[in-house]
Design a binder for these strands. Structure first.
Lengths: 342, 342
DNA sequence: CTGAAAGCGCTTACAG
DNA sequence: CTGAAAGCGCTTACAG
């Protein structure tokens, strides 16, 4: 491996052409004679020349990077595989389109970090990995008209490119599945109420309860349950109710353990005494005893679609759908299904 | 938000100084009069000027990015939180040092991806997230003398900067803990034998068995068990042995479920009939029933240390220790502990 | 302490 | 189809 960075000038001299010509060959410019093209390519290959990406970026005025902000630590995000799966989906697609992924630790806070990325021309576009009800990041990107795609849903703007599951529909279907197992007293334990998906799932649950003539009981709904401890407590309280729930839906699978603990502590059986259903289909859901019914959200696909969209936007291609839906799957497991034959 | 990118020239004009001066003020150059400094900073703040990172990079001949290659899909890596935790540690530290993290999907393969990062001057340094026994990536970076830090251990070179757990020691201690629980027939189920840590853990296990006068039985050791299915099969076979193991150590916690399944299928009790111990302390280990004894590897810290090291290297600071050890913790839980009082 | 000029390694109108 | 020149937005010897 030669130590010296080899430059376009070296290639030009070796090939006996101008730097412009080399540049044109490499960028696939059409009005170059086949002969010159071949000659140049030969030298390029021989010398192993690769254009300096930074110089290219400066000249072309585009970074060829897509920015992502790492979510805050300690929130539920990080114990889930959502982030890394989505990141994989993004990274693969984006790289096939000639972009890199630039990760910014969201310091000192997400909006500041985003402003820095934009102001310093570090990225051509941004993928936002989650949406709050009031979302400063969305607001900033939207107002500055900077290209971005949201994995999630914006409640403030309807002209934002986004990729999301149908959280309403998923919760609806999940609730329906449980009602179908002859449960009427279904509790709902939700994560942060500042997340759009939490509230969407709540809506789906409520709508389904209502439209099936079951009773919607306020005391069955608990929000902002975002730690295992809080989940344990919330569940314990639910189990004290005179009208004890016979099923529980958990929005945030990372706190499932608290739920399970509480149920066990109360010596109740799953699913006989109480059915349990969750979202995200984490390893924990799958491997739990009994396995927990869950909604699989297909994080990789969410990432892929978001990446495809931002790439299309940046290349000026038309994007047919502003709000892409990625299909979820309801995985019915023993935690909700009665009377399984052994 | 003004649409036009504001440049150093604009600041210079507004402040009535030269571009050089503005540049010097911003880069903290000392030989600038306090007065000019203040004047310039005032304008900078007013205009909200932020230097174009790409132009700076080109002029300074450094990208201010640290490269990371996303591990291949489908391998055990991705179901673990190791990657995302390490990434968080890296990202935080690196950003405090003025660098960004550039993620490369390892396409078409990791070495090619690395070569691209290096050849195109996209990153100043690289953090490698794992180490194989024969590792082309390490070899490439080492031979090209490109700055990098390894999370793991190099078996080929001893002059590589690396950050790792003491995998030998951890396995030794874990094995000792189990021997201390009056088990003599300890099986070992390891992940990919091409990973350094797998083999280090195997060594620690073997050494401990031997030095405690227990019998080292070849049929107790299974390697390359990297899927839940393989784990299930391997465990089932182990349980068929005439001399059935009374304990099992699993190198790769993501396949634990297969082990547990097999044990359950065989109607054996944990820990009475067989003790189970694992590594990585995943959520699954923690929340399993019974909870599984595990080695916590502190992924965030691995990431942090690796980041600190690469930053020191790049800034020319001395790095005292070439091979940094991050402490592990043995978390003894019910899966290995007999006769717990209820 | 400060400025004019050259340079970082590319790209791309412009002209031919 | 090809080249010379200007430019992308900074930094940094060099000179004063």
């Amino acid at each position: 491996m030669s130590n010296k960075q080899i430059k376009i000038r070296d290639v030009a001299m070796a090939a006996g052409v101008s730097e412009s010509t080399v540049s044109r060959v490499l960028s696939g410019n059409k009005r170059i004679s086949e002969k010159t093209r071949q000659k140049v390519m030969k030298i390029v290959d021989e010398m192993g020349y690769r254009p300096n990406a930074i110089a290219t970026s400066l000249a072309r005025n585009r970074s060829n990077s897509i920015g992502i902000v790492i979510p805050d630590s300690d929130n539920e995000f990080y114990s889930t595989t959502f982030f890394q799966e989505a990141l994989r989906g993004i990274s693969t697609v984006v790289s096939d389109n000639g972009y890199d992924v630039l990760i910014s630790s969201g310091r000192p806070d997400e909006v500041t970090a985003l402003k820095e990325l934009v102001a310093r021309c570090k990225v051509d576009g941004v993928i936002l990995m989650r949406s709050h009800i009031k979302d400063q990041s969305i607001r900033f990107l939207h107002e500055s008209k900077f290209p971005f795609v949201l994995i999630g849903t914006s409640v403030e703007y309807d002209d934002v490119y986004s990729v999301d599951n149908d959280n309403f529909g998923a919760a609806f279907e999940l609730t329906k599945h449980i009602l179908g197992q002859n449960r009427r007293n279904i509790a709902f334990i939700g994560g942060g109420s500042n997340f759009v998906y939490t509230m969407e799932r709540l809506r789906g649950y409520e709508k389904c309860i209502e439209s099936n003539g079951a009773e919607l009981r306020k005391e069955y709904v608990r929000l902002d349950i975002d730690t295992v401890r809080k989940a344990y407590e919330a569940m314990s309280e639910l189990l004290q109710l005179k009208r004890r729930p016979d099923a529980v839906i958990i929005t945030d699978d990372t706190v499932c353990a608290g739920i399970m603990d509480s149920i066990r502590q109360n010596k109740l059986n799953i699913p006989d005494d109480i059915a349990v259903a969750s979202f995200n289909d984490s390893l924990y859901n799958r491997l739990s005893i009994p396995p927990i019914t869950s909604i699989s959200v297909n994080s990789i696909e969410l990432g892929r679609k978001a990446a495809e969209t931002i790439c299309r936007i940046l290349s000026g291609d038309s994007v047919d759908i502003k709000n892409i839906r990625v299909d979820f799957r309801l995985l019915a497991r023993d935690s909700t299904i009665l009377n399984r034959l052994p």
